[in-house]
Design a protein around this nucleic acid. Structure first.
Lengths: 116, 116
DNA sequence: TTCATATGTAAGGAAATTCTTTCACATGAA
DNA sequence: TTCATGTGAAAGAATTTCCTTACATATGAA
């Protein structure tokens, strides 16, 4: 499962990952079971490179996990599945997460965007 | 309070509104009580036009509500306060919301972005 | 070999987001 | 009037996001 309480920075990444209609559809798709990239692209009706980008975004946020496997006929298949993520978003939840938020601090941080 | 279960389209707007470090800080700030624009801009340390933009984004998502009031000395003050929003995000929650998602449907909708 | 399947990634552009600067307007106090 | 406070909004640049097209590789089957 996804580690309990996310930090402010992690929360931003998770929210940004979910704040897209196509990625929400992907999550909903995977809620019905794991699947591999090419098949999802066909079913959803988008190009494979585009799906690949969205999947990476979701995986980086820890919402899905991918594993490269070999099918019976030897093809390399990249399977993705959901993680047990659960986010409770309320005013107090957000206030708590912001305490561990390092980005967009007009005082401390250099400007606005910074990587780890 | 914010109407119970959001539609898929509303969910995207809410998530997009929260998926920004500065806006999370604003929400956390308002969790401590209502406040008006200029004062928040000073305290947080950003320009008033920038804060104005972020506040509008949050208000459009239904996460905050603003009201124009007159101070004792006659100045027009725009006060903002939080709404009682609460979002439970899990795989099944997302799957349910996607059923009422009209955007980014490769089949139906024209292309990707569409307003109401 | 050629075809169909699977994978990944790079290049480029359109569109959206984010932020700064600037302008305009109104009120009370000095 | 001038200054300090408050409001709103437009214009433009820098950056990010989103998407398409194209290329490169590998496997099994025909």
């Amino acid at each position: 499962m996804t580690g309990g309480v996310p930090t402010g920075d992690e929360l931003v990444v998770m929210l940004a990952a979910l704040a897209n209609p196509l990625r929400l559809r992907i999550v909903a798709r995977l809620a019905g079971g794991r699947d591999y990239v090419s098949r999802m692209a066909r079913d959803i009706g988008i190009s494979r490179p585009l799906l690949h980008m969205h999947l990476q975004r979701l995986e980086a946020a820890g919402l899905i996990a991918g594993s490269l496997e070999l099918s019976e006929d030897g093809k390399a298949m990249k399977y993705y599945e959901l993680t047990d993520f659960h986010l409770h978003l309320t005013a107090s939840t957000v206030a708590e997460a912001v305490q561990t938020l390092t980005r967009s601090d007009p005082d401390r941080g250099p400007s606005s965007k910074e990587q780890s």
